Computed example of a mutant assay.
Amino acid sequence: MTPCSRSFRSFKVAPYIRDVADHLHRTDIEVRTLDELLDSVLGAQQARVGTWQNDDMRRISAWAAIFAIPTMVAGVYGMNFERMPELGWTYGYPLAVGLMVIAAGALHRAFRRNGWL
Results as ranks from 00 to 15, higher is better:
4 C>K: 15
89 W>K: 11
114 N>K: 05
6 R>W: 10
102 I>M: 08
107 L>D: 09
36 E>I: 14
2 T>V: 10
4 C>A: 13
48 R>Y: 06
38 L>W: 15
117 L>K: 04
100 M>G: 00
42 L>M: 14
19 D>M: 00
49 V>L: 06
48 R>K: 11
5 S>E: 05
26 R>C: 02
61 S>I: 05
93 Y>K: 14
11 F>Q: 11
58 R>L: 04
78 G>P: 01
26 R>K: 09
84 M>G: 04
1 M>V: 14
13 V>M: 04
63 W>L: 02
29 I>W: 10
34 L>P: 10
116 W>V: 09
22 D>Q: 07
88 G>V: 03
50 G>F: 01
97 V>I: 09
74 A>H: 04
39 D>H: 07
100 M>Y: 01
75 G>P: 03
108 H>G: 03
99 L>P: 12
79 M>Y: 00
69 I>A: 07
36 E>M: 14
40 S>T: 15
49 V>D: 01
55 D>I: 11
8 F>S: 12
105 G>N: 05
61 S>Y: 02
45 Q>Y: 11
34 L>D: 13
73 V>Y: 01
10 S>A: 15
63 W>E: 07
55 D>R: 10
92 G>L: 10
52 W>M: 13
37 L>M: 13
117 L>V: 02
32 R>K: 13
75 G>L: 04
49 V>T: 06
30 E>Y: 06
34 L>G: 08
115 G>N: 02
51 T>W: 12
27 T>G: 04
105 G>E: 13
72 M>I: 08
22 D>I: 00
95 L>W: 12
85 P>D: 14
21 A>R: 10
95 L>R: 08
42 L>Y: 08
89 W>H: 09
102 I>K: 06
77 Y>N: 12
88 G>E: 11
65 A>D: 05
111 F>A: 00
50 G>I: 08
97 V>G: 02
2 T>K: 12
2 T>Q: 00
40 S>C: 15
86 E>F: 13
50 G>Y: 02
86 E>N: 14
82 E>S: 00
58 R>E: 08
86 E>L: 13
114 N>D: 06
83 R>D: 00
104 A>R: 05
27 T>V: 04
54 N>G: 07
117 L>M: 02
90 T>A: 12
40 S>R: 11
111 F>L: 04
11 F>W: 09
108 H>R: 07
41 V>A: 12
106 A>C: 03
28 D>Y: 07
6 R>Q: 15
36 E>Q: 13
103 A>S: 05
94 P>D: 10
23 H>E: 01
60 I>Q: 04
116 W>T: 12
94 P>C: 02
99 L>Q: 14
89 W>R: 05
96 A>I: 15
62 A>M: 01
4 C>M: 13
66 I>Q: 01
48 R>N: 03
80 N>D: 10
91 Y>E: 12
53 Q>G: 08
66 I>H: 00
59 R>W: 06
108 H>P: 07
22 D>P: 04
5 S>R: 06
25 H>Y: 14
97 V>E: 05
34 L>R: 14
50 G>Q: 02
63 W>K: 10
65 A>Y: 03
111 F>H: 03
89 W>S: 05
88 G>L: 09
57 M>T: 15
52 W>T: 15
78 G>H: 01
104 A>K: 03
113 R>Q: 00
103 A>T: 07
34 L>K: 10
56 D>W: 12
47 A>W: 00
64 A>K: 06
57 M>Y: 15
55 D>H: 13
46 Q>I: 10
67 F>V: 02
55 D>F: 05
